[in-house]
């Protein structure tokens, strides 16, 4: 099986540590990972802001970039959901506009290959204990698109519970949105900030040392709010916890 990493544009530019962690983790599990340099962005921001037509070339690029691989792993619930839920929709809309079935065909080809990290570990590799060590208390924020679009369920927490030294604590109001929402965060900054403040209060109340999620966009918002406020847990992507070992703790 040829496995590729889809790093996502946000992780590539701002959170390369998450990408390094995915590579480290998968290599530790014996998976050889490829990184096609032609990959860029799934088009989620464009699509969710209303620029569907701008997304179409990015759909073509995405499918093309990963054409030679059997599986595409990505450390972002919302980017995986973008491909799985919205690529077929973009295809249908193009067809309904009389532009043929090309995008539908491309979507049909890529959708079964794309896996969010926790799905890949549990559903494809069938590994729950990835051999990680992380001696901290951790609260897990499920993120809306992992929870409600991908429906990853308890996969991430099963992985976390298997980590040596890690204590998983309850996050009050866990399934409530953090208020990021892509361009929502700047189009409705007051509501976004109010939601962020409530999420941060719950993160602090959880008593955790680390707030973990499987999507760095949400963590950018939560972490940015925490950093402005001062104190509270630090934020860390699931991949970085799973990549940690006794010799090398994130």
């Amino acid at each position: 099986m040829r496995v590729a990493l889809f790093i996502t544009c946000v992780n590539d530019a701002l959170y390369p540590g998450t990408g390094r962690a995915v590579v480290t983790l998968l290599e530790r599990l014996g998976v050889e990972v490829g990184f096609p340099a032609a990959q860029t962005c799934c088009g989620q921001v464009q699509y969710n802001t209303g620029y569907r037509h701008q997304t179409e070339p990015l759909v073509r690029r995405f499918v093309d970039a990963f054409a030679e691989y059997d599986a595409v792993v990505t450390p972002s619930g919302s980017c995986a959901a973008m491909v799985r839920d919205n690529y077929p929709r973009i295809g249908q809309r193009a067809a309904s506009e009389g532009r043929g079935g090309e995008l539908t065909e491309l979507a049909g080809r890529i959708v079964p290959k794309v896996h969010e990290l926790s799905e890949f570990l549990l559903d494809v590799l069938h590994v729950e204990d990835v051999g990680a060590y992380f001696p901290h208390t951790v609260a897990y924020h499920p993120t809306c698109h992992s929870l409600r679009m991908l429906k990853v369920g308890d996969r991430p927490t099963r992985l976390l519970r298997a980590v040596k030294g890690l204590e998983l604590v309850n996050l009050p109001g866990a399934d409530e949105c953090c208020g990021f929402g892509g361009t929502f965060s700047v189009k409705n900054p007051d509501v976004s900030a109010a939601m962020g403040a409530d999420k941060v209060r719950n993160a602090v109340d959880s008593g955790a040392q680390v707030l973990c999620a499987a999507d760095n966009s949400c963590l950018m918002h939560i972490g940015g709010t925490l950093s402005r406020r001062g104190g509270g847990p630090r934020v860390l992507h699931l991949a970085e916890i799973l990549a940690s070992t006794e010799g090398n703790v994130s």
Binding site: I7, N11, D12, A13, L14, Y15, P16, G17, G19, R20, V23, F35, A37, S185, V186, K187, P189, S192, A193, G196, A197, M220, H221, G223, G224, T225, S227, R228
Partner: peptide
């Protein structure tokens, strides 16, 4: 400008010394 809508309530993420692509 428009970026103030972000930084009014949140700090910006720090840009890393090396993007993932370069590390790879």
């Amino acid at each position: 400008g428009p970026g103030a809508a972000w930084t009014a309530s949140r700090d910006l993420p720090r840009v890393p010394p090396e993007p993932f692509r370069d590390w790879w």
